[in-house]
């Protein structure tokens, strides 16, 4: 019976401890900087256009082929009287969040630091009624960064803490 008593005492000791419940939908725990939700595109606030040039690097590297990228000539390029140094720029971009497996490879292969994993709660709470709604277009992908609502973390492969 000693063991049963010990077991009862164990539960009694947890009874007196503070509950560990996180009141999830009401209280969101702070997410770490590196948190990985779904990828989104970043907005170059200085020139007011996306960083993405539509180079297809991420599309090719994606293991699950969830991206579709189309590029166009940049109408804002210097040669045509604009302010941008980007000759090509993203025209259309779709990411199927339903298929994305959040492996971070697209971020690593991007040469322009134009794509990042969403590290805010908006990136996690994506439930929709129809799978179709998880295919996000360019506007949707850029919206959060354009509004400045994200402090992105773009990891560099093999980067150390020096």
């Amino acid at each position: 019976m000693k063991g049963i008593a010990r077991s009862l005492m164990t539960t009694l000791s947890t009874f007196s401890r503070k509950p560990v419940t996180r009141d999830y939908p009401n209280v969101h725990k702070p997410l770490p900087e590196r948190d990985r939700a779904f990828p989104l595109l970043l907005w170059d606030q200085d020139i007011d256009e996306p960083f993405c040039t539509g180079c297809h690097a991420c599309e090719r590297a994606c293991p699950v082929e969830c991206m579709t990228v189309l590029m166009k000539d940049n109408p804002n390029h210097k040669t045509v009287g604009g302010t941008s140094t980007r000759r090509k720029i993203i025209d259309k971009f779709w990411i199927d969040y339903a298929r994305c497996m959040r492996c971070n490879i697209c971020v690593e292969v991007c040469n322009f630091d134009a794509i990042a994993m969403n590290n805010t709660w908006t990136g996690h709470e994506m439930s929709v009624h129809d799978r179709k709604d998880l295919v996000i277009d360019l506007q949707g992908l850029l919206a959060q960064s354009r509004a400045g609502a994200i402090k992105e973390w773009v990891p560099v492969l093999g980067q150390t803490n020096e």
């Binding site: 009874f15 503070k18 509950p19 560990v20 419940t21």
Partner: peptide, 8 residues
Amino acid sequence: LGRFQQRI
């Protein structure tokens, strides 16, 4: 039971 299991 919740309290015994350290939840609410």
